[in-house]
Amino acid sequence: MKDKIIEKLNNLFKEDIVEVSEFRGELTIVVKKEKIVDVCKFLKEDQELAFDYLVDICGVDYFREKDRFAVVYNLWSLKNKFRLRLKVFVDESDLVVPSVTSVWSAANWHERETFDMFGIKFSGHPDLRRIYMPEDFEYYPLRKDFPLQGIPGSIPLPGQEKIKTQRG
């Protein structure tokens, strides 16, 4: 199965596959971020591979100069009972990744979560807004430079709000 996936992807997207690695029997393929939608569409629609089930999308902050963030796609093929992990790297200067909501509608909330936690924007997403934190929250909590205990006063408590308005 692994060889088949790599072979098929190499035939079609030879230049867009950056790296193929395996750890503990799990296959990870790093793809160029411009091509992620095409790769996903191919993987889903190919009769033999049939990765029709999107398990998860998440972000990772590697906290380094180049390619700081990564977006990880976990796929599952119902037909072959096989897992595949796709990965795209995102540089801090250009935090936009094409959205895969057109391929799987399950991607909708996962991408919103990634946006909420890392600030990675997904172009073409139908409804990209924060999912966990309040709308007016300014930071991205899962970035490595955000402190665990948060920034005091960034989300006001009920009582504090009133005091603020009373004082003007």
Binding site: Y132, G150, Q160
Partner: peptide
């Protein structure tokens, strides 16, 4: 939960 999202005791409000 000593984290950014959790109120450290509801007696604050």
């Amino acid at each position: 939960y000593r984290s950014y999202a959790v109120v450290q005791g509801i007696d604050q409000f």
